[in-house]
Design a protein around this nucleic acid. Structure first.
Length: 353
DNA sequence: TAAACGTGGCA
DNA sequence: TTGCCAAGTTT
């Protein structure tokens, strides 16, 4: 599967990192808590997108105890718009694990870190190596791409044997004198030089030994076998209001946006109109005050068409859910699709006043 | 093991 | 517009 037996140029990588590394907010600290937060925020997330969340999150919860003592709604609100909300729920649960666990402090072994909710092989290696100098290699998307190219691996990198080989290779290349710096250097190379497209091979410290470069395969490595299929869904939100209050509910487990809030929602396999939505909910005396959408919301695996129907009633029926003052919505976390709608709503309201 | 889980940027 | 991708984990 690999086309060479070149030793990995660890020294060249370290020297490159010393002069080329970016100045990122979470660099230079060895506090496992702040490293943990940054690593979770950066899962499947770009630095530019995650950085403001990192600052807000640590301002709200400076220590693991602060996080553990928070309410889940507050944690989710700080995560609003960042996506993959299980990260926030797991972060909160893991903070409780830490503070109520043995010694009440952060685990400092790989297995101890792995036992925390939301901490998988990558994150355990990252925290372990950066905070505690544990000799464990990080294998993320960057490292996979760097090593697949360096070794000239043309097989799909999402197959089990290749994952295993890359893992071994990463561990073999690790600089055990400074595993944290080495891991960050590997990822930094993938993030700034060995890019998915338009790799900048001319400034790469690994060029001399890189098989993909030698064979002209940089643009075709790494290869992936999985294809993403897109599901279409039609969400119809019932925005019920008596002028002062509205009605929201919590998204259930086992679907997208778990734990976030939404207006009562009717899903269908096609777009419905206001009459059909109202017929479903059977609200007496409701008057259609406004409708919005369909709004297309594009996700990796699904395409959601959202429609919002605002109905005016004299009195909110207690049968659906608890009425909430409009102002209280700002403390709740909503999916992006709904957040955009609310922004528009609030803007219109503030213009009238 | 494959599929689910968000959002935004880019070509 | 569409598909791919980004410091992955869970079930």
């Amino acid at each position: 599967m690999d086309a060479d037996h070149h030793p990995f140029p660890t020294n060249a990588l370290r020297q490159w990192y010393g002069r080329a590394k970016r100045d990122l907010p979470w660099r230079g600290s060895s506090d496992p808590y702040t490293i943990w937060i940054s690593e979770v925020i950066l899962q499947q997330t770009r630095v530019d997108q995650g950085t403001p969340y990192y600052h807000r999150f640590l301002s709200a919860f400076p220590t693991v105890t602060d996080l553990a003592n928070a309410h889940e709604d507050e944690v989710l609100k700080l995560w609003e718009g960042l996506g993959y909300y299980s990260r926030a729920r797991n972060l909160h649960a893991a903070a409780k694990q830490v503070t109520t666990g043995p010694g009440g402090c952060f685990p400092n072994t790989y297995e101890g870190l792995r036992s925390l909710k939301g901490v998988g092989p990558y994150t355990a290696a990252a925290i372990g190596s950066i905070a505690f100098d544990l000799p464990v290699a990080c294998v993320d998307g960057n490292v996979t791409r760097v090593l697949a190219r360096f070794h000239g691996i043309t097989d799909p990198v999402d197959s089990a044997p290749v994952i295993k080989a890359i893992d071994r290779s990463a561990q073999g290349a690790l600089d055990i004198q400074s595993p944290g710096e080495h891991n960050q250097a590997m990822m930094e190379l993938g993030a700034t030089v060995c890019l998915p497209r338009n790799a900048n091979c001319e400034q790469c410290p690994l060029q001399a030994g890189c098989n993909a470069y030698r064979l002209g395969l940089v643009d075709s490595i790494p290869m992936k076998s999985k294809r993403t299929k897109v599901r279409e869904r039609y969400f119809h939100f019932l925005v019920l209001t008596d002028g002062e209050h509205t009605v929201v509910e919590r998204r259930p487990a086992g679907d997208i946006w778990q734990g976030l809030y939404q207006f009562p929602m009717l899903e269908s396999d096609r777009t419905l109109d206001a009459d059909e939505v109202l017929a479903h909910y059977r609200i007496k005396g409701a008057v259609l005050a406004d409708s919005h959408g369909p709004v297309r919301h594009i996700l990796t695996h699904q395409r959601i068409f959202g429609r919002f129907f605002e109905f005016r009633v004299k009195h909110l029926p207690p049968s659906i859910a608890d009425p909430v003052p409009w102002q209280d919505l700002e403390r709740l976390a909503f999916p992006r699709l709904i957040h955009h709608y609310l922004n528009k709503k609030m803007l219109a309201h503030s213009k009238k006043v």
